[in-house]
């Protein structure tokens, strides 16, 4: 189920939009490993089918690009307005012929040491841990053939929300005002387009 924030005007936005903003889009980090049945190649093929980030990000807020790097790793790059803002990297390591360990890492959009997002991830560990836990759950759900389980990240979600509440509220206010302005502009444009002959 998609978690959304309901603004005063009734509109709903994914919670992650706001937390994303806290990162400015946030240092690299965190790794969690899990062993799954299946050869490494099969596991990678399954992981390549993940073409959306976990539902906390919201499909409208973030575009996702997935690539097989050919070195046993798969990278998902999240972009906002065509600008890469975050990467998740899954490393697959054969445990034996029929089992593979999958380790997920979160990092900034570049590998540069001074990557701004990586720095902010390091400064906002609760948000970083939430995103990582969400992606780990996304991978786990995919490899186990089940739906994403929001309860699997409820702890990280609560911690991230509590730790960033003050700034989140300020940003919510600003985001709400900006969304309302943009929404009204888009609606007005649509009526103008209709008056000028509509759409082809």
């Amino acid at each position: 189920m998609l978690r959304r924030i309901v603004f005063p005007n009734g509109d709903r936005r994914p919670l992650a939009i706001v937390l994303f903003a806290l990162l400015g889009g946030c240092g690299a980090a965190g790794e969690v490993g899990e062993v799954y049945p299946g050869a490494a190649g099969e596991i990678r093929q399954t992981l390549l089918r993940i073409d959306e980030l976990p539902p906390i990000f919201g499909s409208n807020a973030v575009d996702t690009h997935v690539i097989n790097n050919g070195d046993g790793t798969i990278t998902w790059t999240a972009s906002q307005r065509f600008k890469p803002v975050l990467r998740f990297i899954a490393r697959t390591e054969p445990v034996d012929a029929a089992h593979t360990r999958v380790t997920v890492q979160i990092t900034g959009p570049t590998s540069a040491e001074d990557d701004e997002v990586a720095r902010r991830l390091a400064e906002n560990p609760t948000v970083r841990d939430l995103y990582l836990a969400a992606m780990v759950e996304q991978v786990d759900a995919t490899l186990e053939g089940r739906d994403f389980d929001m309860t699997a990240i409820s702890g990280q979600l609560a911690l991230a929300t509590a730790a960033n509440m003050g700034e989140t509220v300020d940003r919510l206010d600003r985001a709400a005002a900006e969304y309302q302005r943009r929404d009204a502009e888009n609606v007005a444009k649509a009526y103008e387009q209709e008056a000028n002959g509509g759409w082809d």
Partner: peptide, 25 residues
């Protein structure tokens, strides 16, 4: 709007509304 609250479970309307607001279409 606060004087005329609307249902929070109006999903069809919400989706349609978001489409227009976000895309202008």
């Amino acid at each position: 709007p606060s004087r005329a609250p609307h249902s929070r479970d109006d999903d069809v309307c919400d989706v349609q509304r978001a489409t227009l607001q976000q895309n202008g279409v």
